[in-house]
Simulated scan of single mutants.
Amino acid sequence: MAMSKFWWKSDSSKDKSIHWMCWSRLTAAKCKGGMGFKNLRDFNTALLGNQAWRLISFPDKLLNWDPTLSYIWRSVMEAQALLVQGISCCIGNGQTVDITNSPWLPSIEDPFVHSDNKAISNQKVISLFKIDEKAWDIELVLDVFEERDAELILSIPLTENDKDTWYWRHEKMGHYSVKSGYNVIQASKNQPNTVDNSRFWRKLWNLKIPNKARRIQVNAQCPVCNLCDESAIHSLVTFSFAVECHQFSSVKQVAGDYHIFTEWLQMVFEQSNNRDICIQEDGLEQWCPTSSNSVKVNVDAALFTDPNRYNYAIVVRDHLGHLVQAMSKCSLGKVVSRAIRECRHQRSP
């Protein structure tokens, strides 16, 4: 709360100030559209994770393990969920690592064993070694575990270390850091299937611009007609080109008083039946036959800005769908729509 007031409150505002963006947006990383501020609660949890990591690395540390009496122990327990997301066991002698309940597989996403076999229940990793030899019993592993678990187990190199040790999967050196712990907490908050626009934000933050801009001149008028202020209702409803599009579509002009686009759209739905508004699936129009003893002419055109050329095509078919005549032509030149010509004519003296 103190950081939020420091950021939004100005010298002129004594008591009240407007918070233009929620704190969760401000604490997001700069590459994700935020300001990069630290979430103090999450940062404190990452610091507690460092203390919990020290207890795991040095289990002989003196500490009162009674969670009802020890304030230190209760604080360290706050970081338990964080360590579970990134801690794994490096296999040494395999005597202390439980096969099914310990995170020991070399997988960042999921280091746990998923094979459901009663033979490995409550067993240690050492039971998967060959007798009198520190090597994987390949036949046993392939017979007991599923394909995914077996491939991960056989990919683990067995070293001469006598003890099983813990390591942090999110650091190359395997040691926990407050920075990586904080990043894990923030990553767990992100919603799945979100669009990755980190490249855009990195380019934006790397722009060579002044640190502070006093005033920015913004032209509110429509850049095409320069007659009305640019808004959603002007661009999509009242603009002359939008009116022409409505005339060729199934959307009819509605009568009433509307000021924003959502009001106009709601009036369209209220004054039209569901059959009057037709939207083709996937945006593709389907050809419909005409009445008997008549033909239908379909026309389409495309404009290309480089190198200033346009193309049009005409197809004539009878009521049975049989082709009568067809032609297409590509020509050089710049085509200006009738709406823009009318705007220019209205602006000219």
Rank of each mutant, 00 (worst) to 15 (best):
C222K: 06
L207R: 15
K252G: 08
P210L: 02
C278H: 10
K329Y: 08
S250A: 11
A232I: 01
H234T: 01
V315S: 07
F200P: 00
S292G: 00
S337Y: 15
C278R: 12
E263R: 14
D257G: 02
S272Y: 07
G283L: 06
W201S: 00
R317N: 05
Q325G: 05
F241W: 15
G256P: 03
S240Y: 15
C278N: 10
D276G: 13
V268M: 11
N226G: 11
A213Y: 12
M267C: 08
L227E: 11
W205K: 09
E244V: 03
I279S: 06
I277S: 00
S235P: 00
K334V: 06
I260A: 01
I277L: 08
F241Q: 14
N308V: 08
P289I: 02
M327C: 01
P210M: 07
N219A: 05
C228D: 05
F261C: 07
Q266T: 08
C222V: 00
E263V: 12
C330K: 13
D300A: 12
S328G: 13
V336R: 10
A302V: 12
R275T: 05
R338M: 12
W287Q: 07
D306E: 12
R309E: 00
D196T: 01
N311R: 15
K212H: 05
H234F: 01
Q271L: 10
L284F: 11
A220K: 15
G321M: 04
S249W: 02
I209M: 10
K334A: 09
D306G: 00
G256C: 06
V224N: 08
R338E: 14
T238C: 04
Q280D: 15
V315F: 03
H246Y: 08
S292V: 02
N273L: 04
F239R: 07
V295F: 09
L265G: 01
R338Y: 10
L303K: 14
C278V: 12
A301M: 11
A313D: 00
W264R: 02
C288K: 15
N226Q: 13
F200N: 07
K329C: 11
M327Q: 10
R275V: 05
N273V: 13
F248N: 15
V324G: 06
I209Y: 06
R202D: 03
V254E: 10
S291Q: 08
K203M: 03
T238Y: 15
W264E: 02
S337L: 13
V316D: 01
